[in-house]
Write a protein that binds this DNA or RNA. Structure first.
Length: 298
DNA sequence: AGCTAGTGTCGGTACGTACT
DNA sequence: AGTACGTACCGACACTAGCT
């Protein structure tokens, strides 16, 4: 394949199709018709002598050749956009960009209301879409540009990612109003004797509390494990389960709290993005916004 | 330099095909 | 039947060669 025989715009289409997995949506994004995109894909297929994307019930799935190409294509597009000036400037007041964020419902509850207020003033045309992103696919999400930023504990060590600390959230023990343990000081003995509620979107894996207890050869009994914080709050309000949560959540729920009777490291939130997006002004702008909002949380 | 005809490219419409 | 991708064909446009 000779580069002088290929229209470089086809790589823009390739990038969009890799992200969207849908020819029709790509056509709308690029202001083309579906057949125009289909024809362009045909030219790409001819150039690379590979189908690149296969039609499946789950959309247009990339072939191994496309998978091998995508990181280089995206990197090249970032460099091109930077050098030709398109995208080199990000003007929040006039931008209609949609930022795609990966975060759980705790982060959504704590950050998105303030982010929306802040955007309404500074960037009225900007939209935000938040998704739950599985840790196993997090690096792929960022590499493919399907997500702009991810918010999670510092659990990723892929060299292609960049990250920055966002917030450090200390834990407390929360429980319903009128709970028998709400009237007195929380002791380690009382904590360990109680039944607990735990929030995690993963099927297995120990949380921060379990790790802290394990280091002291202690265990607690988790009798209910759920995947989102708003559900957990309702359960805690209606049962005697204790819920060890970041203190910052308390203003959002009708629960009382006590200090933890043993040391547990705070929940560390980091912001992750792909190295390709490191110099992207829009990505930089949103990172700064989120860091400012997270600073207000603390 | 300006005009014209031939050629290639690309995106459009219309329609076919596959799948749910 | 509805949705989505691929194909056939057509027109617009750009480029080039040849002619005046």
């Amino acid at each position: 394949m000779r580069l002088d025989h290929i229209d470089l715009n086809l790589f823009v289409l390739f990038d969009a199709l890799y992200r969207e997995r849908n020819v029709t949506r790509v056509a709308m994004q690029l202001n083309l018709t579906q057949p125009a995109v289909s024809n362009a894909l045909g030219r790409l297929r001819q150039s690379f002598d590979d189908p690149l994307f296969l039609r499946t019930p789950d959309g247009m799935q990339p072939t191994p050749v496309a998978e091998r190409m995508v990181a280089d294509v995206r990197e090249a597009l970032v460099l091109l956009r930077r050098s030709v000036g398109a995208g080199a400037r990000f003007v929040p007041a006039t931008s209609d960009k949609t930022f795609r964020l990966g975060m759980n419902d705790l982060a959504e509850s704590l950050l998105l209301p303030a982010l929306q207020s802040s955007l309404a003033h500074a960037a009225p045309g900007v939209a935000v879409a938040s998704y739950y992103v599985d840790r196993a696919s997090a690096v792929d999400e960022l590499r493919a540009g399907r997500s702009d930023l991810l918010l999670d504990a510092p659990v990723f060590n892929a060299r292609e990612l960049r990250h920055a600390p966002l917030a450090s959230l200390p834990y407390v023990v929360a429980m319903r109003r009128g709970h028998p343990l709400a009237r007195r000081k929380m002791t380690e003995k009382a904590y360990l004797a109680a039944e607990h509620l735990h929030v995690s979107s993963r099927r297995r894996g120990r949380g921060q509390v379990e790790i802290a207890l394990h280091s002291r050869n202690l265990r607690r009994r988790v009798s209910m494990r759920v995947q989102n914080y708003l559900v957990a709050a309702r359960i805690a309000q209606q049962t005697d389960l204790l819920w060890t949560v970041p203190r910052v959540l308390l203003p959002l729920v009708d629960l009382v709290s006590r200090p933890l009777p043993f040391p547990v490291p705070p929940l560390e939130w980091h912001l992750f993005w792909h190295g390709n997006a490191d110099g992207d002004p829009a990505n930089q702008w949103l990172r700064q916004r989120l860091q400012a909002l997270a600073g207000d949380l603390a």
